[in-house]
């Protein structure tokens, strides 16, 4: 191990999750990629300083996955916090997000650490050699292949498998077996789907519901509600105000900052919903309002989404401004068309 390439130790901040990660430059992996809506967090500089890695703004360009040493993100718990761990890339989140979002099963302590600020980043002692995540991945996959070869030995019933699994492998299945297997498969699929759905509800929907309910409680119980009503009703209570909200949210320099986690949109939606419930905003305006609060939709996610589409670096460089411009061009017309479509709703 070269003395000059020091490793960096990153621990979780208070209320954070995961870690500690110990990472350093390793062969081709020498880039710190930050996908944080454009600005460069201070920890990126510190990590680069310690390890000698190069900082790359993932929002402007893309980096081949095998050159990323660590990804730095600011995800509030929807998508990005799971995407890099899924690809086996160590991930540092500036926000205090734990295991959440649709890819939460990939967020583990070995590869992910959150609520990180400059104080959580330090030089690692040499004795704490980092375990390369890629190696562990390879190990598990080779173990799996071993398992598969073991179970290939032929016998009527194997102790490794349930009767159903053995039957499924037999070549000449009787009709009854086929029906049984089919029914079993469907029921298992339902059961697994139910498990996934409950997981999503528990870890993603209900926490947000709690947050929103508290917000509503404070707004309505404290009298701030009346203040909000005075601001929101003229703004969200007519089509011009809604188009103004849509315009502001779609401004190309603002939209990537409003995007993360859809949190801004969800809070705005809740505020407008409260006013609709109180009768301060006519219910048919709910439709244009849905479009107005979300003209920034996915603007923060463009490079990651294009990455999922296996786009070339060139495409990402063109795609980010292109989508921001098109969101801006579309934003207000969407609200207007939605308003036209809202005639006759709830009359």
């Amino acid at each position: 191990m070269l003395a000059m390439s020091k490793k960096v130790k990153i621990v979780k901040g208070s209320g954070g999750f995961g870690g500690p990660l110990v990472i350093g430059v390793n062969g081709k992996k020498d880039k710190v990629m930050y996908v944080t809506g454009g600005h460069k967090p201070a920890i990126v500089d510190k990590i680069c300083e310690i390890t000698g890695a190069t900082a790359v703004n993932g929002f402007e360009t893309s980096v081949p996955e095998d050159e990323i040493m660590v990804a730095v993100i600011d995800c509030g718990g929807t998508l990005r916090c799971g995407i890099y761990p899924q690809k086996g890339i160590p991930t540092v989140n500036i926000m205090a997000t734990g295991k959440s979002g649709p890819l939460r099963q990939y967020i583990t302590e070995e590869i992910y650490v959150s609520n990180v600020d400059v104080d959580q980043v330090s030089v690692a002692g040499e004795e704490e050699g980092a375990e390369e995540p890629s190696e562990t991945v390879q190990q598990t996959s080779s173990e799996e292949t071993e398992k598969e070869t073991e179970t290939e030995q032929k016998s009527t019933y194997s102790k490794d498998k349930k009767i159903m699994e053995t039957r499924a492998e037999q070549e000449n299945k009787s009709l009854l077996t086929k029906i049984g297997l089919g029914a079993g498969k469907v029921i298992n699929t339902f059961y697994q789907a139910a498990r996934d759905a409950v997981e999503t509800m528990l870890h993603t929907v209900i926490p947000f519901m709690g947050f929103v309910a508290l917000l509503i409680g404070i707004i309505q119980g404290s009298g701030i509600g009346d203040l909000f009503a005075n601001i929101m009703s003229p703004l969200a209570g007519n089509i011009w105000g809604l188009m103004a909200i849509g315009l502001i949210c779609s401004l190309p320099f603002l939209s990537p900052l409003l995007g993360p986690g859809g949190v801004i949109g969800q809070v705005l939606g809740t505020l407008i919903g409260v006013e609709i419930g109180k009768g301060n905003i006519p219910p048919n305006l709910a439709l244009p309002a849905l479009f107005a609060i979300n003209t920034q939709n996915a603007a923060d996610f463009i490079p990651v989404g294009l990455g999922l589409a296996e786009a070339e670096t060139k495409t990402i460089e063109v795609g980010v401004p292109s989508v921001l411009y098109s969101r801006f061009l579309n934003g207000v017309p969407r609200v207007f068309v939605a308003w036209l479509a809202s005639f006759g709703l709830y009359k």
Binding site: G77, T78, L79, S100, G101, P102, T200, M201, T204, V205, F208, M209, V212, G261, G262, G265, Q266, V267, L268, G269, T270, L271, I272, G273, V274, E275, I276, G277, K278, G279, I281, P283, A286, L287, A289, L290, I293, N294, A338, A341, S342, L345, Y346
Partner: peptide, 28 residues
């Protein structure tokens, strides 16, 4: 589901008025 409250935030106001959310969802 993670960003459901974009819709649900507004739709819960509709629900509070005793109106059906589905009308809104379909037009959306």
């Amino acid at each position: 589901p993670a960003e459901l409250f974009i819709f649900l935030g507004i739709a819960s106001g509709i629900q509070q008025l005793g109106l059906p959310m589905t009308d809104l969802a379909i037009r959306y």
